[in-house]
């Protein structure tokens, strides 16, 4: 993936010190971030982190306890009537009658907008043309997700709020969703995507906002988030690694990141990698993965996010 370009589009979503509560539970705890036109901003975090609560506030469904949010410069709740013409949304699940056909539901929503996209073209683009006349209840989970995305797109929105758009979507479907997001990016649409899928986030994001327990843990482009870890050497090994011995052998601190992943605090050059593999071989161990140089979003995420707690928020999916 080429490094993302620096932000140039206007801010289409602004969240400042947002707090959302469910009774005594604080789902979103002073979150601040922004999303720009022509970019895909990914709100990344574990289940219960507060992603859906933020999106539901931006959609106008959920009141905030304090703080401020703006979509296209408008208040999501007070200016809901104006925003529904300019914002497309995709719910985490559901939202479409089981006893309706994709072509029918798209024509229904097309009728709500003055200049909708062509229904047949949209179905073709999202790989739904062959299922246009099938009842929604007979569609696969991935097809339903793509239909939900199509409904979000039908009114030519300036901003899209997509809650877990690739959940349950197969590989081919994901490619179609990504291609659609690429097109939206080129058209200058600002897209906010929530996901807990790190691979997906890495593939689609121009800008990443990591949220954990209702707080923003980090924000930036992929390059920015991973740049200060570029000298880290990481490897996975299922055997028992004597980190003290390896530290001595490599002359650099070795730390265990999780059950099978180890981090070596050293420049990831060829000589160090050779010494590492040699040491592992001598110890009768096999590295199942060695990653040198630039770290991945996953590494950053591991460092930033605490153990997921799905029960923190009612429903566990907020």
């Amino acid at each position: 993936m080429p490094p993302p370009e620096p932000p140039t589009g206007d801010l289409v979503i602004e969240v400042e010190e947002l707090v959302v509560r469910y009774g005594d539970l604080v789902a979103v705890d002073g979150a601040s971030f922004g999303a720009r036109a022509g970019q895909v901003t990914v709100l990344l975090g574990p289940n219960g982190a507060g992603k859906t609560s933020i999106v539901e506030h931006l959609e106008g469904y959920r009141a905030s306890a304090s703080g401020r949010a703006r979509v296209l410069g408008l208040d999501p709740r007070r200016d809901h009537g104006a925003l529904v013409h300019r914002v497309g949304i995709m719910l985490q699940e559901g939202g479409i009658q089981p006893a309706i056909r994709p072509r029918e539901v798209l024509r229904q929503y097309a009728g709500f907008f003055p200049d909708p996209l062509d229904v047949d073209d949209l179905m073709e683009r999202l790989g739904l043309a062959h299922r246009a006349g099938t009842m929604v209840r007979r569609l696969s989970g991935g097809e339903r997700q793509r239909l939900s995305l199509a409904v979000a797109l039908i009114g030519r929105p300036e901003v899209l709020l997509l809650d877990e758009p690739t959940a349950g979507v197969d590989l081919e479907g994901r490619e179609q969703v990504r291609a659609t997001l690429d097109g939206l990016r080129r058209d200058g649409v600002g897209v906010l995507v929530t996901t807990h899928d790190l691979d997906e986030a890495e593939r689609i994001a121009d800008h990443v906002v990591v949220i954990d327990r209702g707080r923003i843990a980090a924000e930036g482009s992929l390059a920015e988030l991973t740049s200060d870890r570029s000298s880290t050497l990481r490897f996975r090994c299922h055997g028992s690694v004597d980190t003290d011995a390896l530290t001595t052998a490599l002359g650099a601190a070795v730390q265990r990141s999780d059950q099978h992943t180890y981090t070596v605090d050293t420049p990831a050059d060829a000589e160090r990698i050779a010494r590492l593999t040699s040491w592992l071989a001598d110890a009768g161990l096999v590295a199942t993965e060695i990653r040198a140089g630039g770290s991945r979003l996953e590494d950053v995420y591991r460092d930033l996010v605490t153990t997921p707690d799905p029960g923190r928020i009612p429903g566990g999916a907020a």
């Binding site: 959609e59 106008g60 469904y61 009537g81 529904v84 013409h85 914002v87 949304i89 719910l91 699940e93 559901g94 939202g95 479409i96 009658q97 089981p98 929503y109 709500f112 907008f113 409904v151 009114g155």
Partner: peptide, 17 residues
């Protein structure tokens, strides 16, 4: 059932009103 399926929520975010 429309409410349970999220249909009303989805329609509420559309220009239908």
């Amino acid at each position: 059932f429309e409410r349970q399926y999220g249909v009303l929520k989805r329609l509420g975010a559309s220009p239908l009103g």
